[in-house]
Amino acid sequence: MATKYMDAELVGKRMSSRVRKNAGWKGLFFASTLFGLIVLAVLLVRIFTQGIEYINIDFLKNHLSTDASRAGIMGAILGTAWLMVVVIPVTMVIGVGTAIYLELYAKKGKLQSFIATNISNLAGVPSIVYGLLGLTLFVRALEFGNVILAGGLTLALLVLPIVIVAAQEALRAVPGSLSEASYGMGATKWQTVRRIILPAALPGILTGAILALSRAIGETAPLTVLGIPALLIPFPEGIFDTFTALPMQIYYWTIDASLVAEYANLAAATIIVLLVLLFLLNSIAILIRNKFQQRY
């Protein structure tokens, strides 16, 4: 070895500070990871302590009221439930149908990649823009008015990309050997899709659909655009009724909290109800994913 460029002693001396630096940054990285979780914890604790004492049977079953002590959220709960009634079938049929077309029927080519690109771009459109689409198309052009059907269809379009992508992944995960076995017995394509591929992909599809549904339930922005009344007394009884929904109720009570301070607590209580609902939905999704997902 001719010239030595590396001074072993110097390298050794520098190493101590390099190793210390590594340890210091590692601590910082860990703290950063905790930061998000700490905010989450603070948020949950704050909202629960603020709202929990307002939650009782009356609050859950009463009509809305400007009087904070008598106000209830039954209307909002029903509104959210009715929205789900619209969102679930629409997203399932369109979402799964689109996924089947893209994964199993479409020829690889321009049309297929155009539709796929279109879907991924739709996923990035801000939800408020969907609200304007819903307002223009469903509320005004089709003259539904600000009813459950208009809200549900708007939300369904909004979460459609989520369902499509989840269903596509689930269909892709079904091994080719299964459908080959079915074709091998002379089954037609649709028979194979309906009897073999869809049942095998169902847990994945359901998980995605439930996650999409929980996204739809928490969405507020598109509904604010549709013109949901702030104080609506009658409960909705069908998809052509006007409505309010849990997130809308939270929104109205929050912005009115500067007028009546107690509204903030009602908003917190409604958030608890909404979070519990989301928690239940997500638990079901996880349960399905863990229990019924077949491993090939």
Binding site: A2, T3, Y5, M6, L10, V11, R14, R18
Partner: peptide, 19 residues
């Protein structure tokens, strides 16, 4: 390698690379 161990001089680095 030389860089992370503290050699910053471009000329020395050139020489190390060649060597």
């Amino acid at each position: 390698g030389p860089k992370i161990h503290g050699i910053k001089n471009k000329k020395i680095l050139d020489e190390i690379v060649e060597k």
